[in-house]
């Protein structure tokens, strides 16, 4: 004996989504420290590497800019996004939202959308600075591809961040594990790719999130022809997004105890 009117009393989703997006955007804009950090670090990298003019050692300007973009994305997604989410869970912000008629997927989607847009803007700034200081001249098409890869990278690291908060209930543990994860991901991507740790590590590195994204960024920026390595990298990224997002959503812990 379900009330046939029950559907009509459900608030419109569009208004709820707009309200959430606006609130999440305000929250993100007010968090200036984390926003600044995730854009400052990559800019420092592109500027510092342009000074010595010996960037060929690291694989050239394209790879350096790719690295900077990737590090910006990890900082804001694996450290920023997940820590904010864990904090909001701990202080009860998520609980309060969850007792409203907004579906839980909407609460998460709004945060993710705002985060991706921020990452996109940060990436544009980093690419422009990088291109100028390294004296590159990418075409409009290349710029567009770089931004497409940036969105892909944001999705990879947001999925990893989501899995991290989803599985780890304590905020301080999310913080600590996030930092360790940051270091592991970056080292695996950079040091591994040089080959000094052997061929096995080198191929693992190519498949790792940072390695895959650096490959895509630098090939796109360098205007390289589409090769097998790019396809593998793309597949790896898709795998990370699907796998980690599934874990982070399916096993998301809403409570801290």
């Amino acid at each position: 004996m379900i009330d046939p009117q029950s559907d009509t009393v459900r608030p419109p989703l569009g208004l709820a989504m707009r309200s959430l997006l606006r609130a999440d955007a305000i929250v993100l804009l007010r968090n200036r420290v984390s926003a600044t950090l995730s854009i400052l670090l990559p800019i420092v990298i592109v500027v510092a590497t342009s000074l010595g003019a010996r960037t060929a050692r690291l694989g050239g300007a394209e790879l350096t800019i790719g690295l900077a973009l990737t590090i910006g994305l990890i900082t804001s997604c694996v450290l920023g996004y997940s820590l904010n989410l864990a904090h909001d869970r701990e202080v009860g912000v998520l609980q309060r939202l969850r007792v409203t008629p907004a579906p839980t997927w909407m609460i998460m989607t709004s945060r993710l959308c705002v985060q991706v847009v921020t990452n996109l803007i940060a990436s544009i700034v980093v690419v422009i600075v990088g291109v100028i200081v390294h004296g590159l001249t990418p075409t409009v098409g290349q710029y567009a591809l770089v931004l497409a890869v940036a969105v892909l990278g944001a999705a990879v690291f947001l999925a990893i961040g989501q899995a991290l908060v989803g599985l780890v209930p304590s905020t301080s543990a999310v913080n600590a594990i996030g930092r360790v994860l940051f270091i592991i991901l970056v080292l695996l991507g950079i040091i591994g790719s040089t080959g000094i740790l052997g061929d096995t590590v080198k191929s693992i590195s190519g498949w790792s999130p940072v390695g895959a994204l650096m490959t895509l960024f630098s090939d796109v920026l360098g205007g390289a022809a589409w090769n097998n390595q790019d396809i593998y990298s793309l597949l790896a990224c898709a795998g990370y997004i699907i796998g980690f997002a599934f874990i982070g959503i399916r096993w998301f812990r809403w409570e801290t105890r």
């Binding site: 709820a16 609130a23 305000i26 912000v93 309060r96 907004a102």
Partner: peptide, 19 residues
Amino acid sequence: FQAELSIEQIAKLYAGLYG
């Protein structure tokens, strides 16, 4: 409530969530 939001913004957010 989100610590970054003002009272007015909180009111707008929750009004919107309830349609």
